[in-house]
Design a protein around this nucleic acid. Structure first.
Lengths: 168, 168
DNA sequence: TTAAACTTTCAAAATTTATTGAAATATACT
DNA sequence: AGTATATTTCAATAAATTTTGAAAGTTTAA
């Protein structure tokens, strides 16, 4: 396979995977493009390579910066901004985990805790089933949350390290 | 908080979480509704409670069955079909993990393996960066895949058990 | 201060995804 | 076989999301 073709496939696959997991396809594609670029790229280059508009490129790059996956670079003597993606895969995984935990897991946990406090008749099957389901989900979500917390605190590659060894 | 209000909030939150993770909002809501229902419900009841059309209810229930989260029940002397959601949260988590692994992780792994075989000039930074990124992602994805595999084989609650103990 | 270079914004348009509802199909009972 | 009841399908429609592109805003340097 040619490098050019491989790049194209990688970008497409990353975009598809992103969209299946609730991440904007274009954002995932821009991230993929920057990931495989040895040098930082300009907005123009991103627009050109992915055939997207200036507005789209600008917003997407801003989002990627907010996710902590891309950084702006300045070059002396130049007005243009350059965008560079962090290449460390373990860092990327942690960053994504951190953001999704904050944006999605934590709000749900907060609600689950409130819902657990609902009052009702212990004899009522509707009440009992609701309470049991909410409590069980809350337990699992709390464990996921704590585990992510530990993962985020760990400086090194927690996944490659301690966990995976459990399974040879 | 009233039980009725709590139910409503739970269904909304589950729908929102689902849509953030690439799962159709309605499907997540129907799942939530069945999860907190002590008894199996009919298509009519699902339509009524979530204010959705017959076609939508039917397709969504079929999808939930395909995800292995809901089962059809028949009652003697009745023509209607009843739908019941598995209540075991650990079972649900494993089922979702299993399906997403099969539908999304495995196709990506297959591609990454192909992309790793791309030929090129070792001196070319474009080639080197591409290869390194793809190889690193492949390593992480392979580890995630193997870990999920182990999780799926484990009959018992792997998460509550061995893993979580690592972090006290 | 002016102007060129570059970035940001956002309403409108395009695209994608989800939903409806009525017709077609299937099922079970008499 | 006929009929009432229930389920499935899918083209049309609606809703949600994404993208565009041109205008407004900002920065830099002469």
């Amino acid at each position: 396979m040619e490098l050019a073709e491989a790049k194209q496939k990688f970008i497409e696959a990353w975009g598809k995977l992103g969209s299946e997991w609730g991440i904007n396809r274009t954002m995932a594609q821009v991230h993929a493009l920057l990931l495989i670029s040895p040098e930082a790229l300009t907005t123009e280059q991103v627009m050109e390579q992915l055939q997207i508009s200036r507005g789209n490129a600008n917003m997407t790059l801003r989002d990627l910066i907010n996710w902590g996956l891309v950084e702006k670079q300045h070059r002396s003597g130049e007005r243009k901004e350059y965008f560079y993606a962090e290449k460390d895969v373990w860092y990327i995984a942690r960053q994504v985990a951190k953001e999704r935990k904050r944006r999605e897991l934590e709000p749900v946990l907060k609600l689950l805790n409130q819902l657990q406090a609902v009052e009702g008749d212990e004899q009522d099957p509707e009440y009992k089933t609701f309470k049991t389901s909410v409590t069980d989900i809350n337990k699992l979500a709390t464990n996921v949350d704590k585990t992510l917390e530990t993962m985020l605190k760990a400086e090194e590659n927690w996944f490659f390290g301690s966990i995976f060894k459990l399974f040879k």
